[in-house]
């Protein structure tokens, strides 16, 4: 029972991190119809910048803040130099160019920081664990991740639902051509959405840095999971991304832990972990296939399709 509680918390935490990545991705897709494969490397860059700045300053919050500013500048730079020229292009061009960017950044990170994983210490304030009854301890920092993820989700929800900017974003997700007809400066709107999305992904990477190893290519798997999340949730829908992310986070975590137990009945622990790792990853894709089969537009479609 208490094991289940821990797994659910872990799933929640993974789901919220996924949500932060998927939120930016789904908005960029929904509003700009731009397929950005490099969204995952922005998550990676967030983690690397956090690792670096926290190392320099020796202070988690200051380092995190610097990392967020850094990733935002980085995102805006990319938007100006590269992405802006891709909005009007075919998906094929977008896919290929952002694929090239992934190759470059994954390798570039390796050149600058080395191939070995970096460790980021858990900040002092958040060290230690919370007693969850039955003598089960759960690390404070993971609660911090859950809390900050929920906070970000709340902020995002408020921005999208309650502000003029959010109204434009929602309008854009359901009908992008309408925006320019309304006289909105689409270019500026794209830039804002893009910077915001990058910042969210970078924030997720930075927050994950102390509990994951920071290494080249760490964004690739996250990117693909984020794809699954927004396909399940419905492209362009923040609500969908939230539901999809939690679903994916929980199922991935639970499937992983239970399939390890299940496989242990048949094979040794190392083998069980290897097999379970593959199997649980497959679960997610099966879930996606099922959702798509039943609802091709996802759970919460944003587009008013007929």
């Amino acid at each position: 029972m208490s094991l289940l509680a821990i797994q659910v918390l872990n799933g929640l935490q993974l789901g919220l991190l996924m949500f932060l990545v998927a939120a930016g991705l789904t908005l960029v897709f929904g509003v700009m119809d731009f397929i950005n494969l490099a969204h995952g490397v922005q998550y990676m860059m967030g983690a690397y910048l956090a690792a670096t700045f926290i190392g320099w300053t020796g202070h988690f919050v200051i380092g995190l803040g610097m990392a967020l500013i850094g990733i935002m500048i980085f995102g805006l730079l990319l938007e100006r130099v590269m992405f802006r020229h891709l909005y009007a292009r075919s998906h094929l061009d977008q896919v290929l160019a952002t694929f090239g960017l992934i190759l470059f950044l994954n390798q570039g990170v390796k050149m600058v920081w080395g191939a070995a994983p970096l460790g980021v210490p858990v900040p002092e304030w958040f060290q230690g664990s919370v007693l969850l009854g039955d003598g089960i301890l759960y690390p404070v920092y993971r609660f911090v991740i859950i809390g900050s993820g929920l906070l970000m989700a709340l902020v995002l929800w408020l921005v999208v639902e309650k502000t003029r900017l959010g109204m434009l974003v929602r309008a854009g997700a359901s009908n992008a051509t309408m925006l320019s007809a309304l006289g909105v400066d689409v270019r500026k709107l794209f830039m804002v959405i893009f910077a915001f999305g990058t910042m969210l992904a970078g924030f997720a990477g930075a927050m994950a840095a102390p509990i994951l190893s920071v290494e080249p290519g760490m964004g690739d798997q996250v990117l693909i999971l984020a794809f699954v999340v927004i396909v399940i949730g419905g492209i362009g829908s923040i609500r969908g991304a939230f539901a999809g992310a939690l679903l994916v986070g929980l199922i991935d975590t639970l499937a992983r832990s239970y399939s390890v137990d299940f496989m242990r009945l048949f094979v040794g622990p190392a083998a069980a972990r290897g097999i379970a790792n593959g199997l649980s990853s497959m679960f997610i894709y099966l879930l996606m296939a099922l959702v798509l089969f039943l609802r091709p537009d996802g759970l919460f479609p944003a587009r008013g399709r007929t």
Binding site: M82, H85, L96, G100, L101, L103, Q107
Partner: peptide, 9 residues
């Protein structure tokens, strides 16, 4: 990577 990007752009 940049070669691909340049090629597309």
């Amino acid at each position: 990577g940049p070669l691909i990007i340049l090629f597309v752009l």
